[in-house]
Each structure stands twice: as structure tokens, then as C-alpha cells.
Design a protein around this nucleic acid. Structure first.
Length: 773
DNA sequence: CGCACACCCCTTTTT
DNA sequence: GGGGTGTGCG
């Protein structure tokens, strides 16, 4: 009979050390496929079962909602097994169905439900639903607990409107997208508009700070937050309000963070505050009954565009830990045994990542057989590439009866690469699923319905109000809306408050005022109901009363039928959320909907080929992986070619892709590819050349040698660089070397250009030539 | 006031 | 390709 001891005996020495860690800080450096999720899950189980920690005091941060759900499921199973052995003296599987169900529901109530597991965003949203009313920013902007969460397109529209309409700026010099990105970056660094201004006091920075400030005002007027606020506001609140911080600090005794290499400044600050209770002096920290446990891998850091900063991971020991060297340390554990991939695949990954200068030295050790060579295929163009890949998977499936579609994934750099694959998959009738790209929640009818729901929860949400006020058409046209909007701006109230003021509405023409009054009446009625009805019932009511469904039914077009089907699907989603989370509230569903990604709905049960970007593939694994589009300019992406640090991130991305594969890895590239409607000639990716030739199968019709020789003999390879050297860059012009960075195997140069200032350049790319002066 | 059509611009990755 | 904007017509 199995005993409880088996619970830990399946772990290796290092995993076990991590899992049994109780209090204090611990950094777990976990290579790809080293059983990272397992370590996290087992540690939580260990805390609950052996250390008798209250599940409600555990905060576990995952990177996606899907990862959170998986962790909960695994935990359920682990706990079920343990309790079953202890209480019934038999394995869970051998219990009667009745007892299994009873036990699982017991575990859910007592444990899983109490745990705080989720992404930074969803956990912070939960905290804010309790405490946002205690927050006020430096300009006295306030929010209440019914806040809406604006999606990226809402936010883009607001920024665009402020920039072009309100501030009347030139679109070329003040690109709304760039400004939106600047605001998001500022928030991720924890900067308020005023603080941003201090750091960017030049003219353009000043204007961006003003836009940021106005943007924040408009969010507050809508009682809405953007994604970044969800984390920034709790941090601000904790910094300002010691009693609120104290409450959450004492709530969360054990904090666990997955994918720690992809945390950014503001997320780090949040963890730091919760762990230390805001005490700056280390002597005041108490690790009694308290821990912070982070897991990550600097080689898989791929989110710097979201301000992720893997030096946060590198600094963990000096920030929280003992700061000792690797050998002696008690606060760092390395998991280097890889249980996922064949030796060949790992060797390729190790060789590739060895070319990066910015990393902690770490080598994945194989625990499985050598496996097959990596297959490589050079295609004439992207269509031939897709055809090869799909022919190959059909062949694999027909040769191996145990293999099914879900075991196969196509990974690419950018979403648009999916199209040629999709075309052929449809033609051949192969079941597939695309993660990302066009989303369910981006469809017009879904956005409309969500806007109705948001308006009912949060009437200050003018963005949603404007979306639905005349959809379906009910005779409230642009002129009417503009009049009402103007009134709301003059009276400095929300549009909704104007609408519910009958005397105000009556100033409109008879026809319009009647239409507005009846719209307001309908929304009010729905609001009243929403406090006592199920979310699903409210949804149905909205669809009926607003006339949305009838409007679509009348049309009798294929498109309208499609929309009706999507609305049915939305109903199912709301229903599912209500059942799974035991939460009848609309607000709960809405929060979940705005924070869930496409990936979260990736169903493992469905037997389909998966297509996704390398970013989406993080944390996943597949027996068979096709890494496609390995060309210079595709992977690495064109925008990273001139910047060595971005290039290293692209290499990590490629590394992530390779390490997703368990059994077989195929790498393909095309010689020609249509980009933005025109044909481009492509050359093979430098990353492919960085993989040793003997790991790559030679039965394919590619000849890498020529290009690879050319590259290895790169004219800059044997040049000794020193500070003061003069160079010419093919596009930046003349410059002077100010720093020589990196090690011998991989040199990067900091170069000061006359026109552009300082840039970091990789001399190996042949973009520069040394000149004598 | 709404819709259709033409044209132009941009083009990474996502919670 | 595709989404957003502007224009012109019904």
C-alpha cells in the first residue's frame, strides 16, 4: 500500500529541497522542463498538509489564468490522494464514485477555494474590489468597487481622442500608439504623471505627461481602470495606507511567484511590500511563519516589451536572501534536470542560449534518451513551408497510431504567420486551434453585450454607455448624443447623471427625448434586477429588452445568424463561470472576462493541432513541435536586429520554442515570404546556424553550409575592439566606441553616434566597419 | 442620419 | 492584407 511518504519520494533531491522549504526567502532557478510547476504545486500541498498552513494565507502568482487553473486542479488531485490514504487507507481511485465526489467537494470548500491563486492582474483586481474606496491619487481622483476594466482598444481610443481631438496634436509627431505605450511603460515603472514629468522634462515628455494626466482623469470619470492600474493602484494604496498594507501583509503569510523572470518593477514592488510590510530596515523583517518563494529562469525572459526585467530575478538574493555564492547559499536552488525533451533537443537549446551574454550560467541536463535528430526544411516560400509541415504531420499521424493531433504544435514569431497553415489545415480537414489573433471578445456583438453588462454594473462607464446607447438603433443619433455629452462636460458630471435628469433630457426634441427616456428606463430596470438575479438571467433580459436579439433575427443574413450563435456562446460562458466559481454576480464574470486570454480556453480535451506564437507557448509542452519561419527578420524579428539586447531576447524566444518539444523538433524556413503585401527574400536565421550541425538531420534538402560559413567567417569576428575605435554603421553613420561589453565569445559595443547618441551594437552582424582615423 | 466605397497607413510579442 | 478615416450618395 502507498503511504503518505510517497508524496515527496517522487521528487529529486533539489525539487524536494524546494518543496520542503517552509519559511524565509527562496529563489528557485528552474530550467525548462525541470518540473517547475510540480515544485510549486507540491510545495503548496506540503505547506497545507505538513506545515498546517491555512490555505487562505497562501498567495500564488501565476503567469496565465490557465496556469492558475491547472495548479488548482493538480492540487485538488494531490490533496485528494493524500486525504484518501490517510482517512480511508486506500487510494483515491479505488474510492466509490460517491466518496470521490464528497471528498473533492470537501477539498474545494476547505482548501482550493480559500487559496489566492491567479495572475498579478486577477489577484490585484480582487484586492481592489475590497479596498479601492480607500484610495485617492495625488489629484484626488477616486474609484469605487464597481470599477470597469478597460481593454486595450478602449484605452487606445481614449488616448487617441485626447491626443488628436482635445490636444489637437499632430499625429506624426505624437503618435497615439507610441503615447499609449509610454503611459503603460510609465505605469509599469510605478510612475504617476507628475513623476513621469520629473523624469521627462523635455518638451515632448511634458506633453506626454499632460496626456497621461488627462487620461487618468478620464479613467476616473468612467470609474474605470486599465490593466496597469490593477497593479499600480494597490501598490500606491499600500505605500500610503499602512493599515491597508498591514491587513494584506498579515493575510498573505506565504507568497509564491511563478515565471519570476518576467515580473516588472511595479509587480516586484507589490511583492516586496506584501512580504516586508513596507519596512525598509531589513532588521525589522520577520521570517517567522512567513515565506517568499519565487521560481524562474532568466533564459526564458521574453516580455521586456511589457517592462519585464529579469535583473529582478538576478537580484533576488541580494534583495531578500542571504547574498551568498551559489555553493553555500540557503536561498537559491537550481533545478537543471530536464524531464521533458530528448538529449538532442536539449543540446540544441543549450548551444543556442550559450550565445547570450546576459545570463546565469546553467545547463539543462538530459534524463531521457538521445532521441532523433532535429529535422530541418528549407522551403521556397511560406506556402511551401506550410505544405511541408502539414504533409509531415499527416505522415506522422498515419505512421503512428498512438499519436494524435493534440500532440502537435506549430510555433511562430508573429500571429500573421498562421494564415498559410490555416488555409491548408482547412482544406485538408485537419482539426486545429489558433491561440491569440482575433479574439472572441473582440467581436462586435460580444463587445456590445459586454458593454451593456458593464454599464449595468458601473453606470459611470461612459465608454460602454456610448457604445450601446444606440445599438441596436433606437433613434438616439449623433446630434442627440453630442448635445448630451456637451451638457455633461459643462456640468462636469457623468453622461449617465445627465441622462437620469429628466428635465435635462426634456430639453431635447420630442422624438429624441422620448427615445432617451425609454433607454434610461430600461437600463434602470436592469440595474435593479441585477442586484437580485443571476448573471445569466440579466444577460437574457438585456438581450430581449434592448431589442438586440430581435434586431439580429430580423436581418436574416448569414452574418446575423453567426452573431446570434456567438451570443449563445457568450451565454454559455457566463453560465459556466457562474457554475465553476460559485459566483452569481455579474461583476465577477466581467472581471474574469476582461482578464482572461485566449490561452486560458485552450482545451486539452479537444484533439486539435495547436497554432500559436512563441510567447503564447511559454509554459506548454508538446511531443511534436514545428518551429517555423526561422529567417533573419522573422525570428529574430526585424526590429531586434540592430540592438544586441533585443537580439538576445529573440534568442531566448527561440530557446523557449525549442524547449517546448518533447520527442521531435522540426525547424523550417522560407527563402521568400510575403511581408506587407510584397515579396521579400529571406536568409536563414542566425539561430539555426548556432545549433551544431551534427544535431540536425541531413536527409532534408537544405544546405546550410554555405551561409553558415559566410557567417562564421564574419569579417568582424577576429577584430579586437577597444574604447576609442572609430566605426561606420550602415545606417547610423559614423561613431565612436565608448564601451566594450560582454565576454570573449560574445562582444557587444556601446557606440556613440554623432546624430543619435549611444547605441549598443553587435559587431558580429556586420553592420559596422572599423575605420582608421 | 446611415451606409458604402475608396484610399491610406502601418505592420511584434500580451496580462 | 486590414483597419480606420473621410467622402459622397441615398
Amino acid at each position: 500500500m502507498t503511504t503518505s511518504a510517497d508524496f515527496l519520494s517522487t521528487l529529486n533531491h533539489f525539487q524536494r529541497r524546494a518543496v520542503e522549504h517552509f519559511c524565509g526567502p527562496l529563489l528557485v532557478i528552474a530550467g525548462a522542463g525541470s518540473g517547475k510547476t510540480r515544485a510549486l504545486t507540491y510545495r503548496i500541498a506540503n505547506l497545507i498538509i505538513y506545515n498546517k498552513v491555512n490555505p487562505g494565507s497562501i498567495l500564488a502568482v501565476t503567469f496565465t489564468n490557465k496556469a492558475a487553473k491547472e495548479m488548482k486542479d493538480r492540487l485538488d488531485n494531490l490533496l485528494a490522494q493524500e486525504i484518501s490514504l490517510k482517512n480511508y487507507r486506500q487510494s483515491f481511485d479505488s474510492l466509490s464514485e460517491f466518496n470521490q465526489k464528497k471528498l473533492l467537494s470537501f477539498i474545494y470548500k476547505k482548501t482550493t477555494k480559500q487559496l489566492w491563486i491567479g495572475t498579478f492582474h486577477s489577484l490585484c483586481a480582487r484586492i481592489l474590489r475590497y479596498d479601492i474606496n480607500k484610495y485617492q491619487d495625488s489629484k484626488k481622483r477616486k474609484w469605487d468597487r464597481n470599477f470597469s476594466i478597460f481593454d486595450e482598444s478602449d484605452v487606445q481610443n481614449i488616448v487617441k481622442n485626447i491626443t488628436l481631438k482635445q490636444f489637437n496634436l499632430d499625429e506624426k509627431t505624437f503618435n497615439p500608439r507610441t503615447i499609449r505605450y509610454a503611459i503603460s511603460s510609465a505605469k509599469n515603472l510605478g510612475l504617476s504623471p507628475e513623476e513621469y514629468l520629473k523624469e521627462h522634462s523635455y518638451s515632448k515628455g511634458r506633453i506626454i505627461a499632460e496626456i497621461y494626466d488627462e487620461y487618468q482623469t478620464q479613467l476616473a470619470e468612467n470609474n474605470a481602470l486599465d490593466f496597469d492600474d490593477l497593479i499600480l493602484i494597490p501598490v500606491r494604496l499600500f505605500e500610503k495606507n499602512q493599515s491597508v498594507l498591514g491587513y494584506w501583509h498579515s493575510q498573505f503569510k506565504h507568497i509564491l511567484v511563478d515565471e519570476y523572470q518576467d515580473t516588472n518593477r511595479i509587480q516586484y514592488t507589490l511583492i516586496q511590500l506584501l512580504t516586508t510590510n513596507g519596512k525598509i530596515d531589513r532588521n525589522e523583517w520577520s521570517w517567522r511563519n512567513r515565506s517568499v518563494f519565487v521560481v524562474g529562469d532568466a533564459d526564458q525572459s521574453i516580455y521586456s516589451f511589457r517592462m519585464a526585467d529579469f535583473t529582478i530575478l538576478l537580484n533576488f538574493q541580494s534583495e531578500f536572501g542571504d547574498g551568498l555564492s551559489d555553493e553555500e547559499t540557503k536561498t537559491m536552488i537550481k533545478l537543471e534536470n530536464n524531464y521533458r525533451s530528448t538529449e538532442t533537443i536539449l543540446s540544441a537549446a543549450n548551444h543556442l542560449i550559450y550565445n547570450n551574454s546576459q545570463r546565469i550560467d546553467k545547463t539543462l541536463k538530459a534524463t531521457r534518451g538521445k532521441g532523433e535528430k532535429i529535422y530541418c526544411y528549407k522551403a521556397d516560400n511560406e506556402h511551401i513551408e506550410a505544405e511541408f509541415v502539414i504533409n509531415k504531420i499527416e505522415e506522422l499521424i498515419s505512421l503512428n497510431p498512438k499519436l494524435s493531433w493534440k500532440d502537435i504544435a506549430f510555433l511562430y514569431r508573429v500571429n500573421s504567420q498562421s494564415r498559410p497553415f490555416e488555409d491548408i489545415l482547412v482544406r485538408r480537414n485537419i482539426p486545429y486551434t489558433i491561440v491569440g489573433g482575433f479574439k472572441f471578445y473582440d467581436r462586435q456583438e460580444i463587445k456590445d453585450s459586454i458593454a451593456y453588462l458593464r454599464l449595468i454594473v458601473n453606470p459611470y462607464d461612459t465608454v460602454s454607455l456610448l457604445r450601446v446607447i444606440n445599438s441596436p438603433r433606437r433613434g438616439i443619433g449623433k446630434t442627440t448624443v453630442d448635445l448630451l455629452l456637451k451638457a455633461s462636460q459643462e456640468l462636469r458630471t457623468s453622461l449617465w447623471e445627465i441622462l437620469i435628469d429628466e428635465t435635462c433630457v426634456m430639453t431635447l426634441t420630442g422624438k429624441s427625448s422620448k427615445a432617451v427616456l425609454s433607454f434610461v428606463h430600461m437600463i434602470k430596470e436592469l440595474q435593479e434586477q441585477s442586484t437580485k438575479s443571476l448573471s445569466t438571467d440579466i444577460f437574457n433580459q438585456i438581450m430581449q429588452k434592448s431589442g438586440y436579439i430581435n434586431d439580429l433575427k430580423q436581418k436574416e443574413t448569414e452574418e446575423a445568424d453567426n452573431r446570434l450563435e456567438n451570443l449563445q456562446e457568450l451565454y454559455n460562458a457566463i453560465n459556466q463561470y457562474r457554475e465553476e466559481n460559485n459566483d452569481p454576480s455579474l461583476q465577477g464574470y466581467l472581471t474574469n472576462a476582461s482578464l482572461s486570454s485566449d490561452l486560458d480556453n485552450l482545451e486539452n480535451e479537444n484533439n486539435k493541432v495547436s497554432l500559436m506564437t512563441l510567447h503564447s507557448a511559454k509554459g506548454l509542452e508538446f511531443p511534436i513541435v514545428f518551429l517555423v519561419g526561422l529567417e533573419q527578420g522573422t525570428l529574430p524579428h526585424i526590429r531586434s536586429l540592430s540592438d544586441p539586447l533585443s537580439l538576445e531576447e529573440e534568442r531566448r524566444l527561440c530557446y523557449v520554442g525549442i524547449t517546448r518539444a518533447q520527442e521531435k523538433l522540426f525547424i523550417t524556413y522560407a527563402q521568400e515570404r510575403f511581408v506587407w503585401g510584397s515579396k521579400e527574400i529571406k536568409i536563414v536565421s542566425q539561430f539555426l546556424e548556432e545549433i551544431p550541425q551534427d544535431l540536425v538531420s541531413d536527409h532534408t534538402n537544405i544546405i546550410i553550409e554555405k551561409t553558415s560559413q559566410k557567417r562564421n567567417n564574419s569579417k568582424n569576428n577576429n577584430i579586437q575592439w577597444s574604447v576609442g575605435d572609430h566605426i561606420i554603421h550602415y545606417s547610423f553613420g559614423e561613431g565612436e566606441v565608448t564601451h566594450v561589453l560582454g565576454s570573449e565569445k560574445k562582444v557587444n559595443l556601446a557606440i556613440k553616434f554623432k546624430s543619435l547618441g549611444r547605441k549598443i551594437i553587435d559587431p558580429g552582424t556586420n553592420s559596422i566597419t572599423k575605420i582608421l582615423k
